[in-house]
Design a protein around this nucleic acid. Structure first.
Length: 275
DNA sequence: TAGGCCATCTGGTCCT
DNA sequence: AGGACCAGATGGCCTA
């Protein structure tokens, strides 16, 4: 169905999609240089690589997400979901998300400022507009309710514009989500589909939660070990927390590090965080 | 050409 | 009443 108010989707969205793909966001260092392998690279290569094999009728991205061995965590998110109406944004503190007119992420291609969509361009020609007009007019009583039809048409156009803007905001949020998900953001790589973005994001969150739990266990173990021998944990030579203030603070809070360890950039390691 | 993905329109429901 | 949200329908574009 053609757009009624001169905001045809095809051209604009196509350019948007290509622009987003070109807006390369390199994958994180840990992903590029053999960090913890949680299956992301496999997922990405399967999803977007040239070797992405079509798996039947399923989209390659989605199929790859299903095939990849992501850590499977018990997910009660869906189970706790009540059927029917979704949680409104205001309920999660995002009530003011719309109409802010800001683009926090410069990588995100904006659809432009809300182009006065509530006032559909009267000069916007055309066939699609005329077809809409004809569609919105009541064929039963064309003369008596002309003014009402016109008003109804305006209302309908306003509703369409709001819905369009809502979907644009949703897509912008998805773009922001894509920009922080570690996957190949190279120009030669196809943009993640919406469902793939959501599934990857979900697994990424679960992965991070798992890593955090593991880190806590390690710290707890180290803490117990240090207590057993009655000595403080000494950071090994070359170990520098200057680049990790949060970690340093956390370790200080856990009494695992002397207060000045986080400022040891000039110390044993000589400033390098690693080899 | 079929299937996947997407944007848009549209009518309904719910909330403020 | 107006707006947000949702889901179905429809048509276009792209890829295998």
């Amino acid at each position: 169905m053609k757009s009624f108010d001169c905001e045809s989707s095809s051209e604009g969205d196509e350019s948007t999609m290509h622009a987003i793909s070109r807006g390369a966001v390199e994958p994180p260092q840990w992903l590029r240089s053999g960090g913890p392998n949680w299956g992301w690279q496999a997922a990405v290569s399967k999803t977007h690589g040239s070797s992405a094999s079509a798996s039947g009728s399923v989209h390659p991205a989605t199929a790859a997400l299903d095939q990849v061995g992501f850590p499977q965590f018990p997910s009660n998110a869906e189970e706790n979901q009540t059927p029917g109406r979704r949680t409104p944004l205001s309920a999660v503190g995002l009530g003011g998300f719309y109409f802010q007119g800001s683009q926090p992420n410069p990588n995100i291609v904006s659809h432009g400022p809300p182009s006065d969509e509530n006032n559909p361009d009267p000069g916007c020609s055309s066939q699609s507009n005329r077809s809409q007009e004809s569609r919105l007019q009541n064929p039963q009583n064309p003369s008596s309710s002309k003014g009402k039809n016109r008003q109804g048409k305006t209302v309908r156009l306003n509703i369409n514009a709001r819905e369009r803007r809502r979907m644009h905001d949703l897509n912008d949020a998805l773009d922001e989500l894509r920009s922080v998900i570690p996957y190949a953001h190279s120009p030669s790589v196809r943009k993640l589909s919406k469902i793939a973005t959501l599934l990857l994001a979900k697994n990424y969150i679960l992965m991070q939660a798992n890593a955090l739990e593991e880190m806590k266990r390690i710290i707890g173990y180290l803490q117990g070990t240090a207590g057993a021998v009655g000595a403080a944990i000494v950071a090994p030579p070359g170990f520098d927390l200057q680049g990790f203030p949060a970690a340093a603070k956390f370790l200080q809070q856990q009494s695992l590090l002397p207060p000045d360890n986080s400022r040891r950039g000039d110390g044993a390691g000589g400033g390098g965080t690693s080899a």
